[in-house]
Design a protein around this nucleic acid. Structure first.
Lengths: 344, 344
DNA sequence: CCGGGAGGGTGAAACGATTTAACGCAGGTT
DNA sequence: AACCTGCGTTAAATCGTTTCACCCTCCCGG
């Protein structure tokens, strides 16, 4: 119950505090007999290092910060998991912050992280201007941008090629013979939304099709509810599309649900392609074709970068890692031979 | 760039370090003129408190730990969000740990949190024996059990009445006229799994039915894949159940998917009830009946408790908060008008 | 017998904040 | 004139580690 310090351990083991510290940090320099004695004392007293004191003296913190846009989105959850995995392997704690796409909350969290003197910060910035990010850097923290490409050579970034992903999706749909494609997309202030749309346009162009085969339908947020709304709009039309490409899987799931409930067959009547390949995509009533991003890998890579940067700040080269997305084709977009197949 | 300490600020503002500290912590005791001067210096130098030093001296940390079973499960994600919200309002950081249902990982994380001298720990323990929890308490940390009821008067707990939830679900199924119910459940080492099953049994008993109407099918984990496996097993049987109650929504989604793909109509042939009421439950192809738990509220309450406990340890009364679950009936379990049929 | 490693330890300074006792000072009471 | 009383501020002690310069002892070669 009473807090036990390194000094208590020293007394108990009849050595000096310096020796205890050595046992803890450089066991090889202390004689086996002494080492065992100290270890024994640590065990008996239930001593736990005080990381605050440790950090204060050594200057090297053991936590990293993670600021995401929305912990509720499985995409970020998986990224977080990747971060958590490598961080804990390296003995680091992860401080999770949820900016909820609010610059104000982001700023508050960044402030907190600065006070905690975290090892580094992994952040998906709310704004494109990166104001918060630069303040962090001025304070000498290493920052890795998550899922937000940049040309700034002063920091690391880990992202996925969203433009290529958009192209993959639409190229696939065109190849399957779909000709009236609607892209359900988020607001263009969101970087990913813009890029994915550009990729979709690229696909149309490269396929030599008329640009009228692709239409963009914007929705306010990238979540299930927005997808449902979008699908309702599409259903109300006289000329329905034959395929829908959604900017993320949450949208796609919303669209899918509304279509299925309205008796529209997927993919016979309307095909759907999502983005992110979250676990729920494969588990949907009609398994969803989706553009897979290496979510955990993004997290792991980012964590490794930030740890590497702070371990060897001198020789560190800032990297911009760009992963390639991958199309996972499932039933929701496969051209089927027999258009009808009904359950009893 | 160079780390600026409270001493630098003091020099700059021509006061002593003590005064700067007062400005920071008890602004009212220092004369307005001096205060402004100090504030100015802080601003100019871009000073940020070093929380490690702060904590070392004052002994009051500004972070709380959160250990969950699975960050990938939207249930925990929502709880985490609640925790994060109230913690950040109170100026606390949240250290997120994912035990992945492994006692070993849990132990490692708990160790890390102990070293960080966190304010308190919110934990959903992996094991029922609470070994890890007791070690924390021995070290003088306040602990709040999350979603894990206990009779231990020595700690706070926030949970939902799982037994009542199980009873709600099965009572509903029985009332709708289902008579061969399978509960797809997790391993009984998981507390929630046991409780929900007991509740289910209660429901059968209270309804005066024969206990044979309810069967338990155990699966190794509470996730989508396990649900799929379970559904495959059920499909292979000669006598299929007419309703399935799943210990959580991930299982239910897995079951739903396999059933629908096999041409089984939900709920006409087999009804499904899930647990947790995650957002994806409502958005499933067949909207899922589920037992709702106040997820964010659980998180908020737990965070408040742990903060309160450490603020005023003396007068703190350990509380066991037990929320009531609520049944949300959707299409997956509504008895439709049609003649009753017996299995082949 | 002396100088010099090497191996194994020691002890105090330092890290950056908080906290507390003490102090100087102005004004008001006896 | 002596004595409080508050207020604003200061200086010093303190928190638990790490680090670094230094001290023994023992042993070996010259």
């Amino acid at each position: 119950m009473a807090p036990v310090s390194i000094r208590d351990v020293a007394t108990r083991a009849k050595v000096s505090v310096g020796t205890v510290s050595n046992v803890l940090n450089r066991p090889e320099v202390v004689a086996p007999a002494t080492r065992d004695r100290v270890m024994g004392a640590i065990e008996e007293l239930g001593f736990v290092r005080n990381d605050a004191a440790r950090q204060l003296r050594s200057g090297t913190p053991r936590a990293i910060g993670l600021v995401v846009l929305d912990v509720g989105n499985p995409f970020f959850t998986d990224v977080a998991r990747g971060v958590e995995d490598t961080a804990s392997e390296a003995g680091h704690a992860v401080i999770l912050c949820n900016s909820d796409e609010s610059a104000q909350r982001e700023a508050r969290h960044v402030e907190l992280l600065a006070e905690q003197r975290v090892h580094g910060v992994l952040i998906t910035p709310v704004d494109t201007d990166l104001a918060a990010v630069h303040r962090l850097r001025e304070r000498g923290m290493s920052v890795v941008l998550l899922d937000h490409p940049t040309t700034d050579p002063g920091l690391c970034a880990v992202a996925v090629d969203d433009r290529a992903g958009g192209e993959l999706a639409v190229t696939h749909l065109l190849a399957e013979g779909y000709e009236r494609i609607v892209m359900v997309n988020g607001p263009s202030r969101i970087h990913q939304a813009r890029q994915r749309h550009e990729g979709a346009v690229d696909a149309v162009r490269k396929a030599g099709r008329d640009e009228s085969v692709l239409e963009e339908l914007k929705v306010p947020a990238l979540n299930v509810v927005s997808g449902q709304r979008a699908a309702e709009q599409l259903l109300a039309r006289s000329a329905r599309p034959d395929a829908v490409f959604c900017a993320n899987d949450l949208l796609a799931l919303g669209v899918l649900q509304v279509l299925v409930r309205a008796g529209v067959r997927v993919p016979e009547d309307i095909a759907i392609v999502g983005y992110d390949d979250i676990d729920f995509a494969a588990a949907a009533a009609v398994p969803l074709t989706s553009v897979r991003q290496p979510r955990q890998l993004i997290g792991r890579t980012a964590a490794e970068l930030v740890i590497a940067e702070t371990m060897t700040p001198a020789e560190h080269e800032h990297k911009h890692v760009l992963f390639a997305p991958e199309l996972v084709v499932r039933e929701s977009s496969r051209r089927v031979q027999r258009p009808r197949r009904r359950a009893r």
